[in-house]
Design a protein around this nucleic acid. Structure first.
Length: 455
RNA sequence: GCGGGUGUCGUAUAGUGGCUAAUAUGCAAGCCUUCCAAGCUCGAGACGGGAGUUCGAUUCUCCCCACCCGCACCA
Protein backbone atom coordinates (compact mmCIF):
# COMPACT_ATOMS: atom_id res chain seq x y z
CA UNK A 1 0.00 0.00 0.00
CA UNK A 2 2.98 2.29 0.27
CA UNK A 3 3.07 4.94 -2.40
CA UNK A 4 6.71 5.62 -2.97
CA UNK A 5 9.87 4.91 -1.12
CA UNK A 6 10.24 7.03 1.98
CA UNK A 7 13.46 9.03 2.07
CA UNK A 8 15.39 10.18 5.10
CA UNK A 9 14.46 13.70 4.05
CA UNK A 10 10.77 12.81 4.40
CA UNK A 11 11.45 11.58 7.90
CA UNK A 12 13.42 14.70 8.85
CA UNK A 13 10.64 17.04 7.79
CA UNK A 14 7.95 14.83 9.27
CA UNK A 15 9.86 14.67 12.56
CA UNK A 16 9.98 18.44 12.75
CA UNK A 17 6.45 19.07 11.53
CA UNK A 18 4.94 16.76 14.10
CA UNK A 19 7.08 17.78 17.05
CA UNK A 20 9.37 14.77 17.27
CA UNK A 21 12.83 16.10 16.46
CA UNK A 22 14.06 19.65 15.89
CA UNK A 23 17.50 20.74 14.64
CA UNK A 24 19.69 21.70 17.61
CA UNK A 25 19.93 25.44 18.36
CA UNK A 26 17.58 26.00 15.45
CA UNK A 27 16.96 29.73 16.02
CA UNK A 28 20.70 30.37 15.79
CA UNK A 29 20.96 28.65 12.43
CA UNK A 30 21.62 25.23 13.86
CA UNK A 31 24.70 23.48 15.20
CA UNK A 32 26.06 20.47 13.35
CA UNK A 33 25.49 17.03 14.78
CA UNK A 34 23.00 18.09 17.45
CA UNK A 35 19.26 17.54 17.58
CA UNK A 36 16.57 18.27 20.14
CA UNK A 37 13.56 16.11 20.88
CA UNK A 38 10.16 17.85 20.79
CA UNK A 39 7.04 17.11 22.85
CA UNK A 40 6.12 13.97 20.91
CA UNK A 41 9.75 12.93 20.47
CA UNK A 42 10.58 12.95 24.15
CA UNK A 43 7.55 10.77 24.86
CA UNK A 44 8.57 8.24 22.24
CA UNK A 45 12.18 8.36 23.41
CA UNK A 46 11.21 7.81 27.04
CA UNK A 47 8.93 4.96 26.07
CA UNK A 48 11.77 3.27 24.20
CA UNK A 49 14.04 3.71 27.22
CA UNK A 50 11.37 2.29 29.51
CA UNK A 51 10.97 -0.70 27.25
CA UNK A 52 14.73 -1.24 27.13
CA UNK A 53 15.08 -0.96 30.90
CA UNK A 54 12.22 -3.37 31.43
CA UNK A 55 13.69 -5.94 29.03
CA UNK A 56 17.24 -5.64 30.35
CA UNK A 57 16.74 -5.03 34.07
CA UNK A 58 13.24 -5.75 35.37
CA UNK A 59 12.59 -8.87 33.29
CA UNK A 60 15.93 -10.36 34.34
CA UNK A 61 16.91 -11.55 37.77
CA UNK A 62 20.64 -11.30 37.04
CA UNK A 63 20.80 -7.62 36.05
CA UNK A 64 21.03 -4.35 37.97
CA UNK A 65 21.21 -0.78 36.72
CA UNK A 66 23.53 2.16 37.35
CA UNK A 67 23.76 5.76 36.24
CA UNK A 68 27.29 7.13 36.35
CA UNK A 69 28.49 10.73 36.31
CA UNK A 70 29.21 12.08 32.86
CA UNK A 71 32.58 13.48 33.95
CA UNK A 72 35.09 10.87 34.91
CA UNK A 73 38.67 10.75 36.12
CA UNK A 74 41.09 11.65 33.28
CA UNK A 75 42.84 8.30 33.63
CA UNK A 76 39.63 6.48 32.66
CA UNK A 77 40.08 7.51 29.04
CA UNK A 78 43.73 6.57 29.08
CA UNK A 79 42.83 3.12 30.38
CA UNK A 80 40.11 2.72 27.80
CA UNK A 81 42.55 3.60 25.04
CA UNK A 82 40.56 6.60 23.88
CA UNK A 83 43.18 9.25 24.64
CA UNK A 84 45.80 7.52 22.57
CA UNK A 85 43.77 5.51 20.17
CA UNK A 86 40.45 7.26 19.70
CA UNK A 87 41.95 9.12 16.80
CA UNK A 88 43.09 8.44 13.32
CA UNK A 89 46.36 9.78 12.01
CA UNK A 90 45.57 11.10 8.56
CA UNK A 91 47.48 12.77 5.75
CA UNK A 92 45.95 14.28 2.66
CA UNK A 93 47.14 14.01 -0.93
CA UNK A 94 47.77 17.56 -2.11
CA UNK A 95 46.86 16.66 -5.68
CA UNK A 96 43.52 14.90 -5.36
CA UNK A 97 42.67 15.50 -1.68
CA UNK A 98 42.36 11.81 -0.91
CA UNK A 99 43.01 11.04 2.73
CA UNK A 100 45.12 8.14 3.86
CA UNK A 101 45.44 6.43 7.20
CA UNK A 102 49.10 6.99 7.94
CA UNK A 103 49.46 4.10 10.38
CA UNK A 104 47.93 1.69 7.91
CA UNK A 105 50.00 2.89 4.97
CA UNK A 106 53.17 2.59 7.03
CA UNK A 107 52.13 -0.86 8.12
CA UNK A 108 51.61 -1.83 4.49
CA UNK A 109 55.26 -1.12 3.68
CA UNK A 110 56.47 -2.99 6.73
CA UNK A 111 57.01 -0.13 9.14
CA UNK A 112 55.52 -0.77 12.54
CA UNK A 113 53.30 2.14 13.32
CA UNK A 114 51.17 1.89 16.40
CA UNK A 115 48.01 3.96 16.27
CA UNK A 116 48.65 4.84 19.87
CA UNK A 117 51.80 6.74 18.90
CA UNK A 118 51.68 10.50 19.21
CA UNK A 119 51.12 12.75 16.24
CA UNK A 120 54.81 13.78 16.36
CA UNK A 121 56.15 10.23 16.40
CA UNK A 122 53.97 9.19 13.51
CA UNK A 123 54.78 12.37 11.61
CA UNK A 124 58.49 11.63 11.94
CA UNK A 125 58.07 8.05 10.72
CA UNK A 126 55.92 9.27 7.86
CA UNK A 127 58.47 11.90 6.80
CA UNK A 128 61.22 9.29 6.76
CA UNK A 129 59.23 7.09 4.42
CA UNK A 130 57.42 9.59 2.25
CA UNK A 131 59.09 8.41 -0.95
CA UNK A 132 57.67 4.91 -0.45
CA UNK A 133 54.04 5.94 -0.05
CA UNK A 134 51.85 6.71 -3.03
CA UNK A 135 48.37 8.13 -3.09
CA UNK A 136 46.09 5.12 -3.72
CA UNK A 137 43.92 7.18 -6.02
CA UNK A 138 46.19 9.35 -8.18
CA UNK A 139 49.62 7.85 -7.49
CA UNK A 140 51.28 11.09 -6.42
CA UNK A 141 53.54 11.27 -3.40
CA UNK A 142 52.82 14.84 -2.40
CA UNK A 143 51.12 14.67 0.98
CA UNK A 144 50.34 17.11 3.73
CA UNK A 145 51.69 16.47 7.21
CA UNK A 146 50.16 13.96 9.59
CA UNK A 147 47.20 15.14 11.56
CA UNK A 148 45.46 13.15 14.26
CA UNK A 149 41.76 13.71 14.83
CA UNK A 150 40.95 12.79 18.37
CA UNK A 151 37.27 12.19 18.78
CA UNK A 152 37.16 12.90 22.52
CA UNK A 153 35.56 16.17 23.58
CA UNK A 154 37.60 18.10 26.16
CA UNK A 155 36.24 20.05 29.08
CA UNK A 156 37.77 22.49 31.52
CA UNK A 157 36.20 20.86 34.55
CA UNK A 158 38.16 21.86 37.64
CA UNK A 159 40.71 23.71 35.51
CA UNK A 160 40.78 27.43 36.27
CA UNK A 161 44.04 28.17 34.52
CA UNK A 162 43.19 26.82 31.09
CA UNK A 163 46.54 25.08 31.02
CA UNK A 164 45.68 21.75 32.57
CA UNK A 165 47.72 19.08 30.86
CA UNK A 166 45.34 16.33 31.81
CA UNK A 167 41.88 17.57 30.87
CA UNK A 168 38.70 15.91 32.02
CA UNK A 169 37.10 14.53 28.88
CA UNK A 170 33.47 14.02 28.14
CA UNK A 171 32.72 10.33 27.70
CA UNK A 172 33.48 8.91 24.26
CA UNK A 173 31.33 5.95 25.24
CA UNK A 174 28.93 5.49 28.10
CA UNK A 175 29.89 1.93 29.04
CA UNK A 176 33.00 2.97 30.97
CA UNK A 177 30.68 4.03 33.79
CA UNK A 178 29.72 0.40 34.20
CA UNK A 179 33.31 -0.86 34.43
CA UNK A 180 34.10 1.84 36.98
CA UNK A 181 31.28 0.63 39.20
CA UNK A 182 31.78 -3.12 38.79
CA UNK A 183 33.56 -3.41 42.14
CA UNK A 184 31.08 -1.17 43.93
CA UNK A 185 28.18 -3.24 42.68
CA UNK A 186 29.84 -6.53 43.64
CA UNK A 187 30.65 -5.15 47.10
CA UNK A 188 27.25 -3.72 47.85
CA UNK A 189 24.63 -5.71 46.00
CA UNK A 190 23.52 -9.32 46.25
CA UNK A 191 24.96 -10.29 42.89
CA UNK A 192 27.17 -13.13 41.84
CA UNK A 193 28.75 -13.99 38.55
CA UNK A 194 27.32 -14.39 36.01
CA UNK A 195 25.43 -11.12 36.29
CA UNK A 196 25.01 -7.94 34.33
CA UNK A 197 24.88 -4.17 34.76
CA UNK A 198 22.78 -1.94 32.55
CA UNK A 199 23.04 1.78 31.95
CA UNK A 200 21.65 4.45 29.66
CA UNK A 201 24.12 7.28 29.38
CA UNK A 202 25.34 10.13 27.23
CA UNK A 203 28.47 10.10 25.10
CA UNK A 204 30.15 12.83 23.09
CA UNK A 205 32.32 12.55 20.01
CA UNK A 206 33.98 15.12 17.85
CA UNK A 207 32.79 13.47 14.69
CA UNK A 208 34.61 14.91 11.70
CA UNK A 209 31.48 14.73 9.68
CA UNK A 210 28.24 14.31 11.60
CA UNK A 211 25.60 13.47 9.08
CA UNK A 212 22.37 11.70 8.31
CA UNK A 213 20.10 13.16 10.95
CA UNK A 214 20.09 11.15 14.17
CA UNK A 215 22.35 8.49 12.71
CA UNK A 216 25.65 10.21 13.43
CA UNK A 217 25.54 12.97 16.01
CA UNK A 218 28.14 14.59 18.22
CA UNK A 219 26.10 14.09 21.35
CA UNK A 220 24.53 10.69 21.65
CA UNK A 221 22.89 8.43 24.14
CA UNK A 222 23.89 4.81 24.55
CA UNK A 223 22.02 1.98 26.19
CA UNK A 224 24.61 -0.54 27.33
CA UNK A 225 24.62 -3.82 29.14
CA UNK A 226 27.77 -5.52 30.37
CA UNK A 227 27.38 -9.13 31.36
CA UNK A 228 30.16 -10.46 33.57
CA UNK A 229 31.03 -14.13 33.22
CA UNK A 230 33.81 -16.42 34.39
CA UNK A 231 36.75 -16.70 31.98
CA UNK A 232 35.93 -18.77 28.90
CA UNK A 233 32.28 -19.10 29.99
CA UNK A 234 31.31 -16.70 27.25
CA UNK A 235 30.02 -18.66 24.26
CA UNK A 236 26.65 -19.85 25.43
CA UNK A 237 25.74 -16.59 27.14
CA UNK A 238 26.84 -14.66 24.06
CA UNK A 239 24.43 -16.54 21.82
CA UNK A 240 21.62 -16.09 24.33
CA UNK A 241 22.27 -12.34 24.61
CA UNK A 242 22.33 -11.95 20.85
CA UNK A 243 18.96 -13.66 20.63
CA UNK A 244 17.51 -11.51 23.43
CA UNK A 245 18.56 -8.36 21.70
CA UNK A 246 17.06 -9.39 18.38
CA UNK A 247 13.82 -10.40 20.07
CA UNK A 248 13.57 -7.03 21.79
CA UNK A 249 13.60 -5.15 18.52
CA UNK A 250 11.07 -7.43 16.92
CA UNK A 251 8.71 -8.20 19.81
CA UNK A 252 8.94 -5.17 22.07
CA UNK A 253 9.62 -2.39 19.57
CA UNK A 254 7.65 -3.98 16.77
CA UNK A 255 10.34 -3.46 14.14
CA UNK A 256 9.79 -5.51 10.99
CA UNK A 257 12.29 -8.38 10.95
CA UNK A 258 13.00 -7.86 7.25
CA UNK A 259 14.42 -4.45 8.15
CA UNK A 260 16.92 -5.97 10.58
CA UNK A 261 19.95 -8.09 10.00
CA UNK A 262 23.05 -9.36 11.72
CA UNK A 263 26.47 -8.31 10.56
CA UNK A 264 29.59 -9.97 11.88
CA UNK A 265 32.76 -7.90 12.20
CA UNK A 266 35.53 -9.15 9.98
CA UNK A 267 38.43 -7.29 11.54
CA UNK A 268 38.17 -7.66 15.27
CA UNK A 269 39.96 -5.28 17.61
CA UNK A 270 42.79 -7.21 19.21
CA UNK A 271 41.05 -7.96 22.51
CA UNK A 272 37.66 -8.96 21.12
CA UNK A 273 36.77 -12.57 20.66
CA UNK A 274 33.65 -11.99 18.57
CA UNK A 275 31.58 -9.03 17.47
CA UNK A 276 28.21 -8.76 15.77
CA UNK A 277 26.12 -5.75 14.94
CA UNK A 278 22.40 -5.55 14.52
CA UNK A 279 21.77 -3.40 11.48
CA UNK A 280 18.61 -1.58 10.47
CA UNK A 281 17.53 -0.74 6.96
CA UNK A 282 17.35 3.07 7.28
CA UNK A 283 15.64 5.06 4.51
CA UNK A 284 18.20 6.44 2.03
CA UNK A 285 21.10 4.90 3.96
CA UNK A 286 20.31 1.21 3.67
CA UNK A 287 21.44 -1.29 6.29
CA UNK A 288 23.70 0.25 8.90
CA UNK A 289 24.60 -0.21 12.53
CA UNK A 290 22.02 0.03 15.27
CA UNK A 291 23.60 -1.96 18.07
CA UNK A 292 26.82 -3.82 18.72
CA UNK A 293 26.94 -7.09 20.63
CA UNK A 294 30.54 -7.73 21.55
CA UNK A 295 32.47 -10.48 23.26
CA UNK A 296 35.24 -8.43 24.89
CA UNK A 297 37.12 -10.99 27.01
CA UNK A 298 38.72 -9.48 30.13
CA UNK A 299 40.17 -6.44 28.39
CA UNK A 300 38.16 -3.65 30.02
CA UNK A 301 38.53 -4.69 33.63
CA UNK A 302 42.19 -5.60 33.08
CA UNK A 303 42.88 -2.12 31.77
CA UNK A 304 41.13 -0.41 34.66
CA UNK A 305 42.88 -2.64 37.15
CA UNK A 306 46.20 -1.67 35.60
CA UNK A 307 45.52 2.06 35.40
CA UNK A 308 43.72 2.47 38.70
CA UNK A 309 45.77 0.08 40.76
CA UNK A 310 42.55 -1.26 42.26
CA UNK A 311 42.09 -5.02 42.38
CA UNK A 312 39.08 -5.77 40.22
CA UNK A 313 39.30 -9.54 40.47
CA UNK A 314 36.21 -11.42 41.45
CA UNK A 315 36.34 -13.90 44.29
CA UNK A 316 34.09 -16.78 43.29
CA UNK A 317 32.20 -17.86 46.44
CA UNK A 318 31.76 -21.43 45.23
CA UNK A 319 35.25 -22.27 44.05
CA UNK A 320 37.20 -19.59 45.97
CA UNK A 321 38.87 -18.88 42.70
CA UNK A 322 39.98 -15.32 41.87
CA UNK A 323 39.71 -14.04 38.36
CA UNK A 324 39.03 -11.05 36.19
CA UNK A 325 35.59 -11.59 34.67
CA UNK A 326 35.04 -11.63 30.96
CA UNK A 327 32.54 -9.23 29.55
CA UNK A 328 29.76 -9.59 27.02
CA UNK A 329 28.61 -6.19 25.91
CA UNK A 330 25.54 -4.88 24.18
CA UNK A 331 25.71 -1.26 23.13
CA UNK A 332 22.86 0.47 21.39
CA UNK A 333 22.70 4.00 20.02
CA UNK A 334 19.48 5.43 21.45
CA UNK A 335 19.19 8.03 18.69
CA UNK A 336 19.63 5.35 16.07
CA UNK A 337 17.05 3.19 17.78
CA UNK A 338 14.62 6.12 17.90
CA UNK A 339 15.26 6.71 14.21
CA UNK A 340 14.71 3.06 13.38
CA UNK A 341 11.45 2.94 15.33
CA UNK A 342 10.22 6.14 13.71
CA UNK A 343 11.14 5.04 10.19
CA UNK A 344 9.72 1.58 10.66
CA UNK A 345 6.39 2.91 11.93
CA UNK A 346 6.08 5.66 9.31
CA UNK A 347 3.52 4.52 6.77
CA UNK A 348 1.81 6.34 3.95
CA UNK A 349 -1.33 4.52 2.90
CA UNK A 350 -3.36 5.15 -0.21
CA UNK A 351 -7.06 5.05 0.55
CA UNK A 352 -9.71 3.69 -1.83
CA UNK A 353 -10.68 7.26 -2.78
CA UNK A 354 -7.13 7.99 -3.87
CA UNK A 355 -6.19 10.14 -0.90
CA UNK A 356 -3.26 9.29 1.28
CA UNK A 357 -3.19 8.71 4.99
CA UNK A 358 0.02 9.04 6.96
CA UNK A 359 0.05 6.71 9.94
CA UNK A 360 2.71 6.14 12.52
CA UNK A 361 2.14 2.48 13.28
CA UNK A 362 3.86 2.44 16.63
CA UNK A 363 3.27 -0.23 19.21
CA UNK A 364 0.70 1.29 21.57
CA UNK A 365 3.18 1.14 24.46
CA UNK A 366 5.57 3.35 22.51
CA UNK A 367 3.04 5.89 21.23
CA UNK A 368 3.61 9.45 22.50
CA UNK A 369 -0.10 9.94 23.07
CA UNK A 370 -2.12 7.02 24.44
CA UNK A 371 -5.60 8.39 23.83
CA UNK A 372 -7.04 11.43 22.12
CA UNK A 373 -10.41 12.54 23.47
CA UNK A 374 -12.88 14.61 21.44
CA UNK A 375 -16.43 15.83 21.68
CA UNK A 376 -18.13 14.89 18.44
CA UNK A 377 -19.22 18.51 18.03
CA UNK A 378 -17.46 21.46 19.51
CA UNK A 379 -20.49 23.75 19.64
CA UNK A 380 -22.60 21.52 21.83
CA UNK A 381 -21.68 22.43 25.43
CA UNK A 382 -23.15 19.24 26.85
CA UNK A 383 -20.84 17.12 24.66
CA UNK A 384 -17.82 19.25 25.47
CA UNK A 385 -18.51 19.08 29.17
CA UNK A 386 -18.86 15.30 29.16
CA UNK A 387 -15.77 14.93 26.98
CA UNK A 388 -13.69 17.07 29.34
CA UNK A 389 -14.77 14.80 32.16
CA UNK A 390 -13.66 11.68 30.27
CA UNK A 391 -10.46 13.39 29.16
CA UNK A 392 -9.44 14.35 32.69
CA UNK A 393 -10.20 10.88 34.01
CA UNK A 394 -8.15 9.19 31.27
CA UNK A 395 -5.32 11.65 31.68
CA UNK A 396 -5.12 10.89 35.35
CA UNK A 397 -5.00 7.17 34.59
CA UNK A 398 -2.72 7.05 31.54
CA UNK A 399 -0.70 10.24 31.66
CA UNK A 400 -0.24 11.44 28.17
CA UNK A 401 -3.78 11.82 26.86
CA UNK A 402 -4.57 14.58 24.39
CA UNK A 403 -7.59 16.84 24.15
CA UNK A 404 -8.52 17.47 20.54
CA UNK A 405 -11.56 19.50 19.47
CA UNK A 406 -10.11 21.22 16.44
CA UNK A 407 -11.88 21.15 13.08
CA UNK A 408 -14.05 18.15 12.34
CA UNK A 409 -13.78 14.60 13.53
CA UNK A 410 -12.03 13.34 10.39
CA UNK A 411 -9.28 15.89 10.70
CA UNK A 412 -8.71 14.90 14.29
CA UNK A 413 -8.39 11.25 13.34
CA UNK A 414 -5.83 12.04 10.68
CA UNK A 415 -3.84 14.26 12.99
CA UNK A 416 -3.72 11.57 15.63
CA UNK A 417 -2.81 8.95 13.01
CA UNK A 418 0.26 10.98 12.12
CA UNK A 419 1.64 10.96 15.65
CA UNK A 420 0.68 7.33 16.19
CA UNK A 421 -2.07 7.71 18.77
CA UNK A 422 -3.51 4.19 18.95
CA UNK A 423 -7.02 5.11 20.05
CA UNK A 424 -9.34 8.08 19.66
CA UNK A 425 -12.23 8.36 22.08
CA UNK A 426 -15.26 10.34 20.92
CA UNK A 427 -18.11 11.54 23.09
CA UNK A 428 -21.39 11.82 21.16
CA UNK A 429 -25.09 12.13 21.96
CA UNK A 430 -25.39 8.45 22.81
CA UNK A 431 -22.79 8.99 25.49
CA UNK A 432 -25.15 11.34 27.28
CA UNK A 433 -27.89 8.69 27.12
CA UNK A 434 -26.12 5.43 27.91
CA UNK A 435 -22.59 6.33 29.05
CA UNK A 436 -20.83 4.68 26.11
CA UNK A 437 -18.25 6.24 23.84
CA UNK A 438 -16.75 5.25 20.52
CA UNK A 439 -13.16 4.08 20.39
CA UNK A 440 -11.56 4.28 17.00
CA UNK A 441 -8.60 2.09 16.18
CA UNK A 442 -5.64 3.76 14.46
CA UNK A 443 -4.65 0.89 12.19
CA UNK A 444 -8.03 -0.46 11.13
CA UNK A 445 -9.93 2.86 11.50
CA UNK A 446 -12.78 0.80 12.92
CA UNK A 447 -14.90 1.94 15.83
CA UNK A 448 -16.37 0.19 18.79
CA UNK A 449 -18.84 1.39 21.36
CA UNK A 450 -17.76 0.79 24.91
CA UNK A 451 -18.83 2.03 28.31
CA UNK A 452 -16.67 4.82 29.70
CA UNK A 453 -15.30 2.70 32.51
CA UNK A 454 -14.32 -0.02 30.01
CA UNK A 455 -11.83 2.16 28.15
C1' G B 1 38.17 17.77 6.86
C1' C B 2 38.12 18.01 0.99
C1' G B 3 35.04 18.68 -3.69
C1' G B 4 30.10 19.81 -5.63
C1' G B 5 25.10 21.51 -4.62
C1' U B 6 21.12 23.82 -1.76
C1' G B 7 19.14 27.57 1.77
C1' U B 8 11.99 31.96 0.94
C1' C B 9 6.25 31.42 6.76
C1' G B 10 6.00 25.11 10.95
C1' U B 11 6.00 21.92 6.28
C1' A B 12 6.01 21.68 0.79
C1' U B 13 6.62 24.90 -3.20
C1' A B 14 6.28 29.89 -6.40
C1' G B 15 8.68 34.55 -7.41
C1' U B 16 11.50 39.33 -7.95
C1' G B 17 17.76 44.45 -8.46
C1' G B 18 12.35 48.64 -6.68
C1' C B 19 4.46 48.31 -5.33
C1' U B 20 2.13 45.31 1.04
C1' A B 21 7.05 38.68 -1.34
C1' A B 22 2.60 34.52 -3.49
C1' U B 23 0.05 29.55 -3.14
C1' A B 24 -1.23 25.06 -0.67
C1' U B 25 -1.22 22.74 3.78
C1' G B 26 -0.42 23.12 8.86
C1' C B 27 -1.15 26.38 13.18
C1' A B 28 -4.45 29.81 16.00
C1' A B 29 -9.59 32.34 16.81
C1' G B 30 -14.80 32.24 15.47
C1' C B 31 -19.12 30.22 12.82
C1' C B 32 -20.96 25.72 10.96
C1' U B 33 -20.70 20.39 11.20
C1' U B 34 -24.44 13.76 14.44
C1' C B 35 -17.81 9.87 12.82
C1' C B 36 -12.87 9.68 8.80
C1' A B 37 -8.61 15.92 6.23
C1' A B 38 -16.53 19.32 3.83
C1' G B 39 -17.45 24.79 3.87
C1' C B 40 -17.17 30.14 5.41
C1' U B 41 -14.81 34.43 8.13
C1' C B 42 -10.67 36.45 10.60
C1' G B 43 -5.47 36.04 12.26
C1' A B 44 -0.28 35.06 13.22
C1' G B 45 3.82 33.33 10.37
C1' A B 46 9.53 33.51 5.86
C1' C B 47 13.81 35.56 2.11
C1' G B 48 19.84 31.20 7.31
C1' G B 49 23.63 35.05 9.47
C1' G B 50 27.25 39.00 8.49
C1' A B 51 29.86 42.21 5.31
C1' G B 52 30.34 44.39 0.31
C1' U B 53 28.61 46.44 -4.62
C1' U B 54 24.27 49.68 -5.55
C1' C B 55 20.12 55.38 -5.02
C1' G B 56 18.00 50.64 -3.58
C1' A B 57 19.88 43.53 -2.35
C1' U B 58 15.66 38.12 -0.65
C1' U B 59 17.83 38.45 -5.81
C1' C B 60 24.73 40.05 -7.58
C1' U B 61 29.84 39.20 -4.91
C1' C B 62 32.63 37.52 -0.57
C1' C B 63 32.88 35.29 4.36
C1' C B 64 30.38 32.35 8.02
C1' C B 65 26.52 28.77 9.45
C1' A B 66 23.29 24.70 8.43
C1' C B 67 21.58 20.84 5.32
C1' C B 68 22.11 17.40 0.91
C1' C B 69 25.40 14.34 -2.54
C1' G B 70 30.35 12.21 -3.29
C1' C B 71 35.24 11.15 -0.88
C1' A B 72 37.52 10.15 3.62
C1' C B 73 36.42 8.69 8.68
C1' C B 74 33.34 5.60 11.99
C1' A B 75 37.06 3.67 18.62
Amino acid sequence: MEEKRTTLEDIVSFAKRRGFVYPGSDIYGGEAGLYDFGPNGVELLNNIKKSWWKANVYDRDDFVGVDSAIFKHPRVWEASGHVGGFSDPLAECKVCHTRIRVDKELGAIGITADEKMSEEELGKLFDENRDKIKCPKCGNKDFTGVKAFNLLVKSNLGDFTGEDERPVYLPGEACQGIYLNFKNVVDTMPVKIPFGIAQIGKAFRNEISPRNFLFRTRELEQADTQYFVAPHQNKEAYERIKQNRWDWYVNDLGIKPENLKWHQHENLVFYASDAWDIEYNYPSLGFDELEGVHDRTDYDLTQHMKFSGTDLQYNDPATHEKYIPWILETSMGMGRCFLAVLCDAYTVETLPNGETRTVLKLKPELAPVKYAVSPLLKNKPELVEKAREVYLALKKKYGNVMWDDNGNIGKRYRRQDEIGTPYCVVIDFDTLQDGTVTIRDRDTTEQKRVAIDQI
